[in-house]
Design a protein around this nucleic acid. Sequence first.
DNA 1: TTTGTTTAAGTGTTAAAACATTTAAGTTTG
DNA 2: CAAACTTAAATGTTTTAACACTTAAACAAA
Lengths: 151, 151
Amino acid sequence: MKLEMELKSTRPIPAKQRAVLNILFTASWLDCYITRQLRPYGLTGPQYNILRILNGSFPKGLSVLDIKSRMLDRSSNVSRLVEKLRLSGFVERVPHGRDRRMVIVTISETGKKLLSDIEKAQVIESNSGAGSKLTEAEALELAHLLDKFRE
Amino acid sequence: MKLEMELKSTRPIPAKQRAVLNILFTASWLDCYITRQLRPYGLTGPQYNILRILNGSFPKGLSVLDIKSRMLDRSSNVSRLVEKLRLSGFVERVPHGRDRRMVIVTISETGKKLLSDIEKAQVIESNSGAGSKLTEAEALELAHLLDKFRE
DNA sequence: TTTGTTTAAGTGTTAAAACATTTAAGTTTG
DNA sequence: CAAACTTAAATGTTTTAACACTTAAACAAA
């Protein structure tokens, strides 16, 4: 549905403002979608984000700050999120050898198993999920315009 | 900066996933930007959203549910947000005549003054703000692709 | 009417975000 | 070396989000 319809806007919205509102609205919509997808697995969005970051760097681990710098939401409190993931058994924490201030976080086998379960479930419904109506070219164009938006 | 750089991604990201990540990342970036803009005025993003909705419907007011259905973030607790705005003097609440379950919320003169102050300040720096690098046509295209993304 | 259902708004509670502050280890410089 | 500074992680606190639940009014049907 078009943004104006979603927001029940009466008067026309200027182009740039429409872009701003649409980014915020779509992100909220997407966030809600992702939260629903993750609920059965007992993960929140930021926790899932961390697991995927660690999976991408596996078998190497990352420090807390390294994780934070790669997150979608940079205001996340990574220490606490990692601690929750550790309690659930999805990551492991080992102190850094040289620099004893640092802690290196690594995804566990359980964590990797969880990610692959989630991925499988999403692949099954990937043709009906978020962004499924976009062609590859449109998806690329969208990402490019968003990059330009932040300049 | 391109998303891959922002997220320090090593391997290439598939197009649709890039779109998803970029929407979430850009929204978080934008949210941070807006929060900073609004801070001097003592408003949060959702509060500002409500004020603008009420300004758009002025002089008519809206019920709590009407406001909610027009908000960017539909999970907002409008009752509490409206109460805060009322305590700050930016909105007024009057019980609905016929249906005594409803409350009609209207923006006050103080609230309208606040909005115009904020707008003026943003116009001044509108050439350096969010989305300023996009042309009108690109902004429209971006909004259109986001509409399609949610289908 | 009275019973049940739906709708609007508000409230209670838990968890998370936001932001500042603290602790401890490492670095730099006089 | 010692003091000052910087950096990494954790913690404290306040606010807000998220979600369920309550209350009260309107509506619908027996």
